[in-house]
Design a protein around this nucleic acid. Structure first.
Lengths: 229, 229
DNA sequence: CGCAACATGACAGAGGCATGACAGCGCCGT
DNA sequence: ACGGCGCTGTCATGCCTCTGTCATGTTGCG
């Protein structure tokens, strides 16, 4: 019931303040001061969400984020990064993806909690089974099947992962780089234009059901899954 | 333009130090040594933000915060509390009272000002997600969408960036050179007159909604986004 | 009135994206 | 082992939107 959140942050005062705020918001909190402690904490009890400081002793938060993404046990756990500067954020946002959201320091606890809840809500419907339903589409996670209305859709593996990611991250634009990170996995080298092709293939399979406009192009930015035109 | 900040703090040395730092950061400062003086100062000229010390003679800062929240005239004014180390349990109470943020003593003026700016920014509708709402317009940052009233607006990439910059920097005149720097990015060579054209295009997309007068010309200086005609 | 600053419309070029084709690859049954 | 077969990544092409610039009309100001 209560969501479990892991805070990875070296500065004790921030860590404590955030921990108090989260407990107040009915969340279970685990703390870690560095990457090593974080991995131990994760092995101990896997969290539902990870708060990751940008600057950590030894290993940067970004490196840790990558390692977590590569580990199948933590690949699906959403990550929110705490960054120091607003300027770095844009660059980070474009280049280094694999993170679900950013919060820029200094932040108020109120704002942080709002963002955490937003991310957890987004992952909702993915109640462990990996099933989602949205905009006339339904994904049956365990059965690895997709339905439009009542009828089943034939869909390839990559399009399946792409659609699943979109449905669990709707109403939000993702760059091609971000999609490559989330859908293909960070450790492959693939042309960004390849994303276009799979978007095309996904649209094509949705077309017979009139659902191809769920996948929308945002010129100059990327793609977006949205239930509103 | 200049934000008005009220400091409620009984220790004169801290009060003066903070006041000095705030004035240097282009803010108007009012001071009060206790709760009674604070209420007089607020009645005199309502501030945009209140800095509240935890320990006050007569009435604790927390009580005062509750009273301010209860009064409709001050309910919307953000509050930042100054707490001493080791009062963490009290933070929880502060959250209940609707305090917006905390700064733990001892603090650097730099950090304090950063927090103040963050809270003020949020009070203006910027919650850190890149979304803004102002003058009948709303930008959904993550979804990369613009709404006028309730309906969505079709807008090009450059006009989007231009509008976003304006909405996050309203009520202030920017020269064409400044707009080129902020919206186009510093490393491009573009005629200054090009700005005029994009201003024109932005106005044109706002025209159907009667919002074109949000973008105002300041002859001899540049352009300004303002909610007041 | 005359000048400078700005508004407006038109236009050609650039660049982003959609689309269809194709070759490599792994998988499977024969 | 061999030959289909489905899937994937890349490329070439064409379309279409956006963009910067110019020419011309309009406005404000001394």
């Amino acid at each position: 019931m209560h969501k479990r959140v892991l805070i990875v942050e070296d500065e004790a005062s921030i860590r404590d303040m955030v921990a108090f705020a989260l407990r107040k918001a009915d969340m279970d909190v685990a703390q870690a001061a560095d990457a090593r402690a974080a991995e131990i904490a994760i092995a101990d009890a896997p969290p539902d969400l990870i708060l990751l400081d940008w600057m950590l002793p030894g290993m940067t938060g970004l490196e840790l984020a990558r390692r977590l993404r590569h580990d199948p046990r933590t690949a699906e756990v959403p990550i929110i990064m705490l960054t120091a500067r607003g300027e770095e954020m844009d660059r980070v946002n474009g280049l280094e993806a694999g993170v679900d959201d950013y919060v820029v320091k200094p932040f108020s606890t109120r704002e942080l909690i709002a963002r955490i809840k937003a991310v957890l809500r987004r992952a909702q419907g993915d109640d462990g089974t990996g099933s989602v339903e949205l905009g006339g589409l339904r994904i049956d996670g365990p059965a690895h099947r997709v339905f439009a209305g009542g009828t089943q859709i034939e869909i390839g593996p990559t399009e399946y992962r792409l659609l699943h990611f979109f449905m669990t991250h709707a109403e939000r634009v993702y760059t091609r780089a971000q999609l490559l990170d989330h859908v293909w996995g960070g450790s492959v080298y693939v042309e960004e234009r390849t994303v276009d092709v799979h978007i095309r293939r996904l649209r094509k399979t949705l077309e017979p059901f009139g659902l191809e406009n769920l996948v929308q192009t945002v010129r100059g930015s990327g793609y977006r899954f949205s239930t509103s035109a």
